[in-house]
């Protein structure tokens, strides 16, 4: 399968190499987003993700298609997690494989940057004494 688009409860980062590996690909580039312990010097307990799943999958599909059109890629993976995630847990993995490295490096950056702009997924930061929806307010 050329592209894998999923929203899951738990991300297994070990799977992505096999999913992108391909006899025609000399390069595989992967980005993994994880939960960071501090936001503006405040300790984060967990992040909670929710999504409008049917639309999110559609938007991720559009991004993968745009990448496949723009670069010569053999395989693309886009996978996002939902639910509560603790520090160091992976929350998103995107990647691409191509004959040479330039295409997969550029495509990988495009996949994550565009996902963050358009895909209807929301995260709430849980601190010790409060919770905050990220990016909601100026």
């Amino acid at each position: 399968m050329k592209k894998i688009i999923e929203i899951v409860d738990v991300i297994d980062t070990a799977r992505v190499y096999t999913e992108l590996s391909d006899a025609k690909s000399g390069g595989i580039c992967v980005f993994v987003g994880a939960v960071r312990e501090f936001t503006n010097h405040e300790e984060v307990i967990a992040l909670e993700f929710e999504t409008y799943k049917s639309m999110a999958l559609k938007e991720m599909e559009k991004i993968a298609d745009a990448a496949l059109e723009k670069w010569s890629l053999n395989k693309v993976v886009m996978r996002h997690a939902v639910g509560e995630k603790g520090v160091e847990e992976p929350v998103v993995v995107v990647g691409a494989s191509s004959a040479h490295r330039d295409a997969c490096f550029e495509a990988c950056r495009f996949l994550i940057d565009t996902l963050k702009e358009t895909v209807p997924i929301w995260k709430k930061e849980k601190f010790k004494n409060k919770t905050v929806w990220v990016s909601a307010h100026p």
Partner: peptide, 23 residues
């Protein structure tokens, strides 16, 4: 995503999308 001029019908699935923050 629908801009301001898009008409709404009773059987449409309509959703409010606040600033997204995936990744």
């Amino acid at each position: 995503y629908a801009d301001d001029s898009v008409p709404l019908n009773g059987n449409d699935e309509i959703a409010i999308i606040p600033p997204v923050s995936g990744g």
